[in-house]
């Protein structure tokens, strides 16, 4: 029958994918990651740089948890367009955010007088 497109989606709502256990797992894991991040910050468990890294890892982990358990990405049938779009989004977000930080930081210490002094002194092997 010609009208049936090859892209028919067999489950319009995430019937097969969604289950109570999925949501509960996601919820509990999210709580764990949130509390961990909170305690690490308020109790100064790690040094500054390690804390930053840890917080970002915890945030990314919680992101993945919620994307998998709450948004059901990873459960879809092929072709996995939603996943592709998600991956593209993550890539472009990282480019924009990290790129902007890199560029602006670079510009800031070169283009701001007092910071320029600090930078130049460092270059001379000073501070």
């Amino acid at each position: 029958m010609e009208e049936v497109s090859s892209n028919v989606v067999h489950a319009t709502l995430p019937r097969k994918q969604a289950s109570l256990s999925g949501y509960i797992n996601g919820f509990i894991l999210s709580i764990i990651f949130t509390v961990w991040a909170y305690v690490a910050t308020t109790h100064h468990t790690w040094t500054h740089n390690k804390l930053i890294a840890a917080l970002l890892v915890l945030a990314s982990a919680q992101f993945l948890v919620q994307v998998f358990f709450f948004l059901h990405i990873g459960h879809e049938t092929k072709p996995r367009w939603k996943l592709l779009l998600l991956v593209m989004m993550v890539i472009f977000v990282l480019i924009l955010v990290l790129g902007s930080i890199w560029i602006m930081n670079n510009l800031n210490y070169r283009m701001t007088p007092d910071q320029m002094n600090t930078y130049m002194l460092k270059q001379d092997g000073g501070i």
């Binding site: 009208e3 892209n7 028919v8 319009t12 367009w81 924009l96």
Partner: peptide, 26 residues
């Protein structure tokens, strides 16, 4: 079949919108 395709289409379109909103927040 058409309704299911429509649903798939609309849900995908909304997902695409959410992705753009992520760039907004980024």
């Amino acid at each position: 079949a058409e309704q299911q395709t429509n649903d798939g289409k609309t849900l995908f379109g909304f997902w695409a919108y959410i992705m753009t909103d992520c760039l907004l927040f980024a």
